[in-house]
Design a protein around this nucleic acid. Structure first.
Lengths: 204, 204
DNA sequence: TGGAATACTGAACACTGTTCAGTAAGTTTG
DNA sequence: CAAACTTACTGAACAGTGTTCAGTATTCCA
């Protein structure tokens, strides 16, 4: 069945082609400009062709999101490496925020915009973010085992840290920190400082 | 100058009519369904008429956002009333989260979606959220004066609390807490619990 | 080589925000 | 009062969006 295999391969290659074009477009032009028509034009196919490989735009963006989470995970693996678990937790938080500030469009897709989550509206789990969450949880667990942080429940601890980081990044990328009269530069300084303060508070 | 006055009055009344229709539409149908055409239909005017009173959709939404912040402020005034400043801070955080969970569409407009912030892209202050922030700051200030919280800087403290609350609410309303396999009910429970834990951490 | 399956597309549908020429009504002036 | 001017409003259009579908090539298999 060599032909069926080749067909299968070509199908996934085409999906890849579409997804990569969408990802590039997302990074270079942002969400607003990433339309089915623009993607189609970039890969030199008709817009209708995309619908032969993806049910709708949400399903395509969900795939792009998956790829974005792989990038985040790689950043985590690279930056959260310290032997001491609490230091690793600090590195993780910093890496998360840095990722959000440097890749605001990807951050949008992963954590802010509604669109790609419609695909899993019915289900109550979301596998795209799973590996990164597990990474966070394992560090939290280790911190708790050595009694380095003042939490009783690892899920609460993870949720708390994630929320602080996400709150800071998302308020910034959506310009809400303007209420504090911070320019872009001093805002990112304030964000890292707020993270440091938070980490001090949870340290036992 | 009676006629000029009446004209002026009619102009603001018309703006009010448009804004109120937009607000109702926002609450009942959400952001996606709140189109210029739908608003125009609801008030029985042509879509083009709206552009005689608002430069563009962003300017209109900015006005709706202003009204939404007035609602939030009223909630703060009603719920954050305890004599003890730290208890008032707790009440404020709870009220913020409750507001976000009960009015997800308004929360969107105030803190998540890009649209109404385009209007003030150039400026670096954002008056709509100012009163509510001042409310938070005054409580934080009082807490610090009585050495009830472990912060040195009131702005950092305010940013920290706001970020935790916003992080929790926004991750929830945008379905990202699904990664933790929480259904809607247990998610809101987890959110309030995470807030409680945070408040314990910052307490001196 | 003929027929079936596959891959692809042009054109259309129903939306969106926005603009603008044109009309109708209200106001001011001669 | 009538003419001229001003204001308020709208229908239709433009350029864009996601999505569907009939129809056309192309490829595959008997």
């Amino acid at each position: 069945m060599g032909i069926a295999d080749r067909k299968e391969r070509e199908k996934t290659e085409m999906k890849r082609l579409i997804m990569d074009a969408a990802m590039r477009m997302f990074l270079e032009e942002g969400y607003e400009k990433t339309s089915i028509r623009n993607i189609a034009e970039k890969i030199e196919y008709s817009p209708a062709t995309i619908y032969l490989y993806y049910k709708d735009k949400d399903e395509l963006l969900y795939d792009v999101q998956r790829q974005a989470f792989e990038k985040l995970y790689q950043v985590f693996e690279k930056k959260a490496v310290n032997k001491h678990p609490f230091k690793r937790l600090e590195e993780l938080g910093k890496a998360y925020i840095q990722f959000g500030l440097e890749q605001p469009d990807l951050y949008d897709l992963m954590f802010i915009i509604r669109s790609p989550m419609n695909k899993i509206e019915q289900e109550d789990t979301w596998e795209n973010g799973d590996a990164s969450l597990q990474f966070l949880l394992s560090i939290v667990e280790e911190c708790m085992a050595q009694q380095l942080i003042r939490f009783q429940d690892k899920h609460v601890a993870a949720l708390s840290l994630w929320s602080v980081c996400h709150g800071l990044v998302s308020l910034h990328v959506r310009c809400r920190l303007k209420v504090m009269s911070l320019d872009d530069n001093s805002a990112s300084h304030a964000i890292y400082h707020a993270l440091d303060q938070y980490l001090q508070m949870i340290k036992v």
